[in-house]
Amino acid sequence: MIVFSANISTKHREKLQEEFPEQHFVFCDSPEEAKKYTDKAEVYVTYGNDVDEKLINQAKQLKWVACISAGVDEFPLKKLEEEGIRLTNVRGIHKIQMAEYAITMLLQVYRNSKTLIENEKQAAWDKSVRVQEITGKRILILGTGAIGGETARLAKAFRMKTIGISRSGKNVENFDEVYQTSKLLDVLPEADLIVSVIPSTQETKHLFTYEQFAAMKPTAVFLNMGRGDLLKEDDLLRAIQEKEFAHAVLDVFEQEPLPVNHPFWQEENITVTPHISGLSPAYVERALKIFAENLKVYENGENDYRNVVNLKHGY
């Protein structure tokens, strides 16, 4: 039995049933409804926020959890490993929309769009608004996978120098240079734009503290669309207020939704967006394409699944 706790449209449900007529699908409208079937599930398809140790203990027949989002930091990875349950995700399907988000938001800061929009509301014809160009700048991208690579490819259209940070430090297409995470403080002072897309792991949690923000250029723009726990929020706020760097664009936070009384909302040099960098009208279609490819592997008893999560590393 394949149980969907992820609610998908009738169109997608019918397409899966047509493509896999031998499979018994149970499509649920919510994780609460899916709990009725977990004891019979061999495959569990989820957005990821409902899988805990209790669910795994109930799902005695479970062999594979297919997460149709990319982040798996909230999964009980150790428990999955102990039970021999495979976990896959859909990393890579976010690269187009998230790279577009990054370039859009960096341009928004450099072209001073917030001021221009506010002036328009006030019918203020002010040609003194200061604007800049991103062309030819140095962009530092934390995470050189699909999203980071696509962001670097788009940056090349603006003739930027692209520098990557990754766990391995291996050279990757579209990056002029790549360094290991341990070299972060060495390369931060040279970057005009810093974009983070790295996942949440023990190594990346609070990777950015006041020390890292203070190492940036006073003119630098920092954008985080990876995970909210990458940085210490109080340190970022202090660094912005003390003008250690110029502007922060934040799409992810340790607490979401961001509380209405959070000081980030009031800071002129912080742009807040509500965790929307990964949204796309093509999202579910792309996610289910990966799931369908893996389901064929599952049916054939093979082992070459796509996007298998390393349960020790957490990505």
Rank of each mutant, 00 (worst) to 15 (best):
Y110A: 08
R111Q: 08
N112Y: 01
N112K: 00
S113Y: 09
K114P: 00
K114F: 04
K114N: 08
K114I: 07
T115C: 03
T115W: 00
I117G: 02
E118N: 13
N119K: 06
E120G: 13
Q122M: 12
Q122E: 14
A123G: 07
A123H: 15
A124V: 11
W125K: 08
W125H: 11
D126K: 09
K127I: 08
K127N: 12
S128M: 10
S128F: 04
S128N: 13
S128R: 12
V129P: 00
R130T: 12
R130L: 14
V131L: 11
Q132C: 10
E133I: 01
E133V: 05
E133S: 13
I134K: 03
T135C: 03
G136F: 01
G136Q: 05
G136S: 06
K137F: 03
K137M: 10
K137D: 05
R138S: 11
R138Q: 14
I139K: 02
L140N: 06
I141N: 04
I141A: 06
L142N: 08
L142P: 04
G143P: 02
T144H: 05
T144V: 14
T144W: 05
G145S: 06
G145M: 09
A146S: 14
A146M: 10
G148I: 09
G148Q: 08
G148F: 07
G148H: 06
G149K: 07
E150M: 13
A152R: 04
R153V: 07
R153W: 05
L154Q: 10
L154Y: 09
L154H: 06
A155L: 04
A155W: 02
A155H: 00
K156T: 02
A157V: 07
F158S: 01
R159M: 05
R159T: 02
M160H: 05
T162D: 01
I163C: 01
I163L: 06
G164W: 03
G164R: 06
I165Y: 09
S166R: 06
S166M: 08
S166N: 11
R167Q: 12
R167I: 05
R167K: 13
S168I: 08
S168W: 09
S168H: 07
S168R: 11
G169W: 10
K170H: 15
K170C: 01
N171F: 05
N171D: 14
V172Y: 06
V172M: 14
V172S: 11
E173V: 13
E173K: 15
N174S: 11
N174R: 03
F175I: 04
F175P: 00
D176T: 03
E177M: 07
Y179T: 09
Y179Q: 11
Y179E: 10
Y179C: 10
Q180L: 10
T181C: 11
K183Y: 13
L185V: 04
L185E: 15
L185H: 11
V187K: 04
V187W: 04
L188V: 12
L188T: 06
P189N: 10
